[in-house]
Amino acid sequence: MIEVAGLTKKYGDLLAVKDLSFKVDKGKIWGLLGPNAAGKTTTMRILTGYLPASDGKAVVAGYDVFEQPNEVKRIIGYLPEVVPLYPEMTVVDYLKFVAEIKQVPAAKKKAAIDKSVEAAGLEPVRGRLIKNISKGFRQRVGIAQALIHDPQVLILDEPLIGLDPAQCKDIRDLIKRLKGEHTILLSTHILAEITQTCDGATIINEGMLMASGTLDEIAASVKVREGVVLKLRKGGEEAATQWRRIPGVEKVGRSDKEYTVEWSKGQDPREDLVRIAVDKGWGLLEMRSLAMNIEDLYLKIVSGGTAQ
């Protein structure tokens, strides 16, 4: 649905996006993840036709963003980072204005407004002036305006920024409800949002592609070691020493009764670990796979290293 190939954007000498390529399939919620100033907003602005690219190609639903900007604008709903609101308008007047500039036919206008008011949960503030409603509702108005012309593609730039946890959850649920009908690309610098909402993500840093795919795919591409955490009733330092001797095991860490055993990818000494523990009667209480600390993973990706 969204295809970006070799996208490059220069602001004068500053290279904001460098040879970026990724793909989002129809009906997916896809994250564009990266630290601040990674080029997320620039990429989205190019996709929506707000900014021209310096080089490369971007295709949305079969339309080239640079060749057929008007077709693309018709099928994209866009929530910019700063929600584009007119504070002096009421919520409904604002949505009416957006419906008109998005070329919603006059006959369908009322239905379109009602539908997005309902989808975004704006019923309680319908007639209020935008300047008088809370930040959470403003964000919803932003989403409602992006939805108003029932676009195939939704591009949401930091939709959860500045919201409290309850509001975040609301918006997250709202985005999940929109899945299927719409293909959604959302940007964020918070990893948890990706794991909670998205089917997959493209991670960028300093304008460059770092990783792209489903979360498992990304994890697999980054992780070179695997491991387990074992819990023993007794075992002491001896267990650690014994396990270290198993071929393939690279590292055994111990904190009280918990042992972290790591090995290089491709090896699998799990059975040996357990056998020894049982033979020696250390009292194996628990074994779980070493939870990949996804936050670490992300930090690792954006700090440039792909190997540990």
């Binding site: 929506t48 707000y50 604008k73 018709r74 866009y78 910019p80 584009p84 500039i101 305006q145």
Partner: peptide
């Protein structure tokens, strides 16, 4: 920031 709304409309 409302220019972004205008310029991304058809």
């Amino acid at each position: 920031g409302t220019v972004e709304l205008l310029y991304t409309s058809p």
